[in-house]
Design a protein around this nucleic acid. Sequence first.
DNA 1: TAGATTGTTAATCGATTAACAATC
DNA 2: TAGATTGTTAATCGATTAACAATC
Lengths: 241, 241
Amino acid sequence: MTSRTSATSSPDGVAIADADAARDGVEESPVRHIPEASVARLPIYLRALTGLVEQGTETCSSEELATATGVNSAKLRKDLSYLGSYGTRGVGYDVAYLHYQIAREIGLTHDWPVVIVGIGNLGHALANYSGFRSRGFRIVGLLDAAEELTDKEVAGLAVRPFDDLEKIIAEEGVAIGVIATPAHAAQDVADRMVAAGITSVLNFAPAVLTVPDSVGVRKVDLSIELQILAYHEQRKSEETS
Amino acid sequence: MTSRTSATSSPDGVAIADADAARDGVEESPVRHIPEASVARLPIYLRALTGLVEQGTETCSSEELATATGVNSAKLRKDLSYLGSYGTRGVGYDVAYLHYQIAREIGLTHDWPVVIVGIGNLGHALANYSGFRSRGFRIVGLLDAAEELTDKEVAGLAVRPFDDLEKIIAEEGVAIGVIATPAHAAQDVADRMVAAGITSVLNFAPAVLTVPDSVGVRKVDLSIELQILAYHEQRKSEETS
DNA sequence: TAGATTGTTAATCGATTAACAATC
DNA sequence: TAGATTGTTAATCGATTAACAATC
């Protein structure tokens, strides 16, 4: 409820969202609820649209966008219909306009300061990942508990001691934290993030995190995907029909 | 249908699965179909069980395992019931036994040689990721098109030119390939992998891959997860109730 | 036998998708 | 007007979960 306090009281103009939120809140009344499965596909459509914009394509049909993203076209139209009616019957969608509407819906028209904790191989890769910066995410802190990493430069940023966490979160108004530490450290990092005001956590550590209900957590597990592939691979060789 | 040819004709004993498959095929008749959503949770249960084994816990209830994994206990029991009846009413599950059964179901009791193509930051992180090795995945090739990387040592393996792909796949009987290249190179890499006999692809590149139906593809997109978090983060600040 | 916990049933919920009326 | 394509309906499919009989 009263969660984003530190994220909105930023002194240096990074503070976000609330003015827009108030406006949007007035105009779109019934708190449109977009199904989780649809939300998860919006970034996929967005990337395909970015590609079309770069190609100079001005208009596309749901069929074309569906092919480009590997999604069923009826599903795609239904997904888009949750956002509003941004297409034109008989014509299709204006690429640039739809791109903007999806970006706005996801929140990518905001500025999202992010901290990454744990600058091992993975943290290093994440810090350099261009897909973050290009989508409104701004890395404002790389932190690691290992003293030997302090002040080393990674992706143009000096690594800082983990104990600077609270200070950076407060100064920059950080709402989103990324955990790329070993499993045993993850819960402690999450606790400190939450205490400092972070309300969304992206967890790469192989650990289940306990956080208050008001805090969003998503988990990426590299080995789980590989295991799911192995399961299907094994099934293929078992096919004796 | 006739897909895994090169993966099974390996000359050096890496060839896998087929003997086991024949045996299993005889014993478990009706080609048990495990729902996709359940398959995706098996690795999560497996990890929790690994933790319990390490703690020396011998038995656990569905309730305990559910709490440890953040899953509803009824759902967990239903998931496990697809594998067989491995629990004891009134008692719970034998941790070591259940661990083995899940590992066997996923295929982690096999040896899975894997190649990684694209040794940038992410490929580097993947090569060093301990979660692969500890689960039966064995990295047998790190490949990159950039000549300046050739013969550099990463995770104890010399990086090899991309053109060695077919040779390594044939020699080692590789069925699973990991793509960690930039988006523009991903489809070409996938095509060459498939032509060389690979039947499962884990794709980290931000691109939609086109492969034959017989080839399994899973996609991990780091920025998509962050965008989904941003969506929910934005919704939190819009709550005007 | 009494207590505990599994494995399964069945109700519910949510997601997918073919089909088509609306409309450009 | 004719052709094209959206936005929506409704049927279907799959996943979740409370409840409980089976059974240790």
